[in-house]
Amino acid sequence: MTASEKKKVLIVEDDHLVSEMIKGMLEDLGYEVAGEAEDGHEALGMVKKLHPDVVLMDIKMPRMSGIEASILIQKHFPTPVVILSAYETEDLVKEASEAGVGAFVVKPPRPGELFRAIEIACGRFVDMVKLSNLRCKYAEAMKTIESLSKLLPVCPGCGEEKQDEDYLNKLNLYLSGIPVEEISRYLCSRCRSRTDT
């Protein structure tokens, strides 16, 4: 059982021996241990610096808890997070879920369990990133449609040609904003054939 790509993992754990366990297990699974942080605060700095593929996070730690750190990581440096805790109360699971955590594993994990958790968290994180990108594109497209609708030459209310004074100005302004590489999409068939030739 090895990771398809050698993913870099950041371990956030305040207990040295537990940290040893995770490290040994990750190495056996084919992951690369990118670093070890002792609390949530240190983890934030190391995520920013090391850009790990996934973070394995304990919950109860000094200075900053794993939940708080997960929230801040998702906000500032979106990275998949897998919680690894000896506590497994419903409240903790709920808090972890709300913090944007990808998986929750109870200590001590079996290697296969840890592997699945890391892979699923990473997979869901990729989906989430894609979804986020799509959402951005959708928002952009909606913005374009709104701009174009204002440039229609005929009024949908009366069917008359628009006589607004600044209509041509608006049209020129819009056309001037079209990137050069996209301009062909806006051309008429004659201009397009001329360009093609």
């Binding site: 021996l17 537990v18 040994g24 297990m25 000896a86 200590k107 001590p108």
Partner: peptide, 16 residues
């Protein structure tokens, strides 16, 4: 929690 932690530590000891 302690038991699980201790078990984790024992596993950690083995790895170390």
């Amino acid at each position: 929690h302690r038991v699980k932690n201790n078990l984790s530590e024992i596993i950690g000891l083995l790895y170390a």
